[in-house]
Design a binder for these strands. Structure first.
Lengths: 136, 136
DNA sequence: GGGCGAACGTTATAGTATAACATTTCACTT
DNA sequence: AAGTGAAATGTTATACTATAACGTTCGCCC
């Protein structure tokens, strides 16, 4: 992940810090509330920062929540894609690596000539804690 | 997919027909424009129909586009999940089956106790036609 | 014909994201 | 130090996506 080490600009750092401190998925407007005290005033400032942070790998977008999370781990390693396991009870979002080129998944489309540039994998369900609590 | 054969209500049929005739992904408001002539006037009517159609398997939501597509094929069969291959050039969205329980993908989270209820898989990239045209 | 649940209609509003344009900052060069 | 070009920032306005809250109508079954 080459761009990973470019220094963050002011607003990018503010947005990333808010997301990282929160340790959970946040919508752009939740982020905006969190960084207002730092001087950021408008949604577009947050979205711009998020766009850059996404490109540099610091932040991921969770499509099915219209939300964003700070990247949990160094997935520079294997070119693995990332997936999210989203608990619909407690809202917890945890990132996990999607193995290799996820051949099982992309096999069918690539046979038809589709060239994948980005892959979104999001699981909805119950995290371990909530699943256990419910079965009790 | 048990509920698959309940008859559609009036609005549900209008929305499904619009989506099926178009043969492409449409946003809720594009659908609204398409069904206005049938008497549907308000966004909420479209969203309500889409919600039911989603539950019955007639329609899928494409999270990364905030759009909807008519289900292309009878995936009642194997309990396979569905994925979408989305061409960022021409906008084409094609549905494909995600094999089995997609063990490669869900292995990591399920080891940690996560119980998957629904899985979203969306690939962005270039369809065969656009990939070829670009390499020319 | 009354009761019930699903579907429908209407208005208003909440929530998510970007357009357009002016200004400032900053690294780099001359 | 002044110039310059790209990136980042700031401001306002607006577009796009989705749901809340409420009342009415329809179809079915008793």
């Amino acid at each position: 992940m080459a761009a990973r080490h470019k220094p963050l600009s002011g607003n990018q750092a503010k947005v990333y810090d808010a997301l990282h401190k929160a340790g959970r998925a946040m919508t752009a407007y939740e982020i905006l509330d969190a960084v207002r005290e730092t001087g950021i005033r408008a949604p577009v400032q947050v979205y711009r920062a998020l766009e850059k942070l996404g490109k540099s790998g610091h932040v991921h977008r969770v499509e099915s929540l219209n939300a964003f999370v700070a990247c949990a781990h160094d997935h520079a390693a294997g070119g693995d894609a990332v997936g999210f396991a989203i608990c619909d009870d407690c809202g917890d979002v945890s990132e996990f690596p999607v193995p290799g080129n996820a051949s099982e998944v992309t096999k069918a489309p690539s046979k038809l000539g589709f060239v994948t540039e980005h892959m979104t994998v999001e699981l909805h369900g119950r995290c371990a804690d909530c699943a256990e609590r419910e079965s009790a």
